[in-house]
């Protein structure tokens, strides 16, 4: 068991622990706590990306998710006055039904994954900036341009939605 395997288990445990704390934190029901643990989940997941030699995506994960998206979340939490939300209790029917269905899905996933005879040797190329950039500007030029149009549309939509008198 090499150092990368030990690091994998450390990062995987951190990702899952923080993921659980996003959804079901026993100490606090506040959305701010969930947002902070989501940042930790994303940072430890970018560690997993680096272990998988996806260096560019690891950095993009931190910059875009932990940076931009989470700042957006925290801003919206600040705008909304959510003090009243913490008092409400979770219904036990929802808890039981949710745990049952999620447990069934995990069982199916894990059975399917462990029975498939998947490869254990890593043969893929390194995902550094040069390699991904070459792909984005040659093989995937059209999707790259389409996605920029999508971002423009999202921007216009958000500006329209946040107008004072929404029609």
């Amino acid at each position: 068991m090499g150092i990368t395997d030990i690091l994998f288990y450390v990062f995987a445990a951190l990702t899952l622990l923080c993921g659980v704390l996003v959804v079901a934190n026993p100490l606090s029901r506040s959305p701010v706590t969930s947002a902070m643990f989501l940042v930790l989940t994303i940072i430890s997941m970018s560690g997993l990306f680096v272990l998988l030699h996806a260096f560019f995506l690891g950095i993009v994960q931190i910059i875009v998710y932990a940076g931009a998206v989470m700042v957006l979340f925290v801003f919206v939490i600040m705008l909304l006055d959510l003090k009243e939300e913490e008092r409400r209790r979770i219904k036990s029917f929802g808890l039981v039904a949710g745990l049952l269905s999620v447990g069934a899905i995990v069982t199916i996933f894990v059975k399917a994954i462990t029975g498939a005879g998947l490869p254990a040797t890593a043969a893929g190329a390194d995902g550094d900036t040069h390699a991904l950039g070459m792909l984005l500007y040659t093989k995937y030029t059209l999707p790259f341009e389409v996605i920029s149009v999508l971002l423009l549309v999202a921007m216009i939509g958000v500006i329209t939605l946040s107008k004072k008198d929404l029609k």
């Binding site: 899952l16 996003v22 997993l48 999620v102 995990v106 996933f109």
Partner: peptide, 17 residues
């Protein structure tokens, strides 16, 4: 893949719960 599946399940549980 197991880590990914468990993380997906945690997210799904959050959406339901």
């Amino acid at each position: 893949l197991v880590v990914s599946a468990v993380l997906f399940a945690i997210g799904l549980l959050g959406v339901i719960m």
